[in-house]
Amino acid sequence: MATQAATRVEDKLYLNRYLVDAGRAHIKVRPHTTPSPQLLSLLKLCPARCYEMNSAGQVEIATDGCVECGTCRVVAEPTGDIEWNYPRGGYGVLFKFG
């Protein structure tokens, strides 16, 4: 079920236009050993499924497909779990319709 959902989100993101700022992720996850409940919730909450758990049980982010909604910011910035910025001017998602 989880893989199915993952495939579907990737298919959705594939429809979008992005200008990826290679090597400059605009959101960073604070290094941790055990993720907080807030950080864990992002695995399901992020609409672009940018957050994944690695084999060591830590939460990682890949921002390439980020749709810049700000959901992870309201959930996990207050706890200090993530550092959230907008991409540099011109980069990131480029909505054709919005």
């Binding site: 993101l13 979008n16 609409p47 749709v67 054709k96 919005g98």
Partner: peptide, 29 residues
């Protein structure tokens, strides 16, 4: 999950008939 909810909404019999055969061109949040 937000996308799970979206898929469920789309597959509701009242909604499915309205969008049948459509081409999806963007996903936003």
């Amino acid at each position: 999950t937000p996308y799970g909810l979206l898929e469920k909404f789309k597959s509701h019999p009242s909604v499915r008939a309205l969008i049948e055969g459509s081409e999806v061109k963007e996903y936003a949040a």
